[in-house]
Design a protein around this nucleic acid. Structure first.
Lengths: 153, 153
DNA sequence: CTTTAATTAATCGCGCACGATTGAAAGTAG
DNA sequence: CTACTTTCAATCGTGCGCGATTAATTAAAG
C-alpha cells in the first residue's frame, strides 16, 4: 500500500536525520577542544590520507562543492590548519596543504575521539553491520539522485 | 584495537551524515513545489498528527528547541501554513495551529512524496530492517548524550 | 589564431542547527 | 505577600549545506 511506503520513508529519513545530528554532537565533544567542527575534521581526514589535494578533490571525497568548501577552508586556514594556494599548472584550481600543526595534530585529535568513544561507553563493535546497512541505503540514494540529474541533460 | 574503533565510528558517522543529506535532497524534490523545506514538513507532520501543540511539544517531537523553531515557525506562518498565538492559560507558551490551507494540503503533499518514491524507483520495502537498525543506533546515541548532560548537574 | 565551450573557485542568499544568553511569566518557599 | 527558582519563547552569533550565479582560466573547435 502506498501509505505504508510513505510512512516507512518518513521514519527512515527522520531516523537518519536524528542520528546524523546526534553523531555530530557526539564528535563535537571531542573536537571542541581543538576548535574544530565535524566538517572541518572531515577535511583534515581527507588531507591526512593525501596531502596537497585540490578543492575539487576534497569535494569529491566529501561530496561537497566550492560553495561549502571555500568558506570552510578559509576558516581552517585562518585557524592555522592548512594553507590555500592556486595551482601553478592550472590557475583555476586551488591546492590545499596541511600546515605542520595540521599534520602533527592527527594523533592527539584521533586519540581524543577514541577517549570519547571509550568514556561514553559507546559499544561501537555492536554496529559493524549497521555501517554496511546504512552504506547500501546511501549508495541507493546517491545513484538515484545523480542518475536523475543526468536525465535532465 | 582502538584504531579500528575510530575507523568504524568515522565510517558510520560519515555514512549517516551523507545519507541524511541525500534523503533531505530526495524529499526536497517533492516539497519544493509547495515551497517547503524538510524541516518544515516535519512540523506539518507533527501538527497533522495533533493540531494545536505548543512550540515546546513540537520541539519534543522533533528534538528541536526554540532557537531553531522560533524562526522556522515564523516563516511557516508567513507562508500561510499555520498560526502562532500565546497560550491563554500560560502566557509563556506559544500555541501553534494549522490554517485551513495547512490542513487540506496533507493529501497533496504526501501524494507528491509518494509519486517521488515511485517515479525514482526507490524500492523502499527493501529497507524495512534498515529502519530498525538505524533506530537502535539513534537511541543508543541519544541516551548516551542525554545521560551525560545529566551527570553535570 | 580566434571563437566557443567547459571547468573551476568564488560569491550570494537563504534556511537550518545549535551553544549561549535574555527577559517574561509562572511556580515555589518562607 | 516577597524572594527565589524554574520554565518558557525569543534573541544573538556562528558554521554549515546548497541552489544559483559569476568571473577567470583552460580546453576544444573551426
Amino acid at each position: 500500500m502506498q501509505t505504508d511506503h510513505i510512512r516507512l520513508a518518513n521514519q527512515l529519513c527522520f531516523s537518519v536525520y536524528n542520528t546524523s545530528r546526534l553523531f555530530t554532537k557526539f564528535y563535537q565533544r571531542a573536537l571542541s577542544d581543538f576548535g574544530l567542527t565535524y566538517s572541518q575534521y572531515l577535511v583534515l581526514m581527507a588531507l591526512w590520507e593525501e596531502d596537497g589535494q585540490t578543492l575539487h578533490q576534497i569535494g569529491d571525497a566529501l561530496y561537497l562543492e566550492s560553495n561549502t568548501l571555500t568558506p570552510l577552508l578559509r576558516r581552517m586556514e585562518d585557524a592555522g590548519w592548512l594553507t590555500r594556494e592556486k595551482s601553478t599548472h592550472d590557475r583555476r584550481q586551488l591546492t590545499v596543504h596541511l600546515t605542520a600543526e595540521g599534520q602533527k595534530s592527527q594523533g592527539p585529535i584521533q586519540q581524543a575521539i577514541a577517549e570519547c568513544i571509550g568514556k561514553e561507553h559507546l559499544d561501537i563493535d555492536q554496529y559493524n553491520d549497521t555501517q554496511e546497512t546504512i552504506s547500501q541505503l546511501e549508495m541507493a540514494l546517491r545513484t538515484l539522485l545523480t542518475d536523475e540529474s543526468k536525465m535532465e541533460e
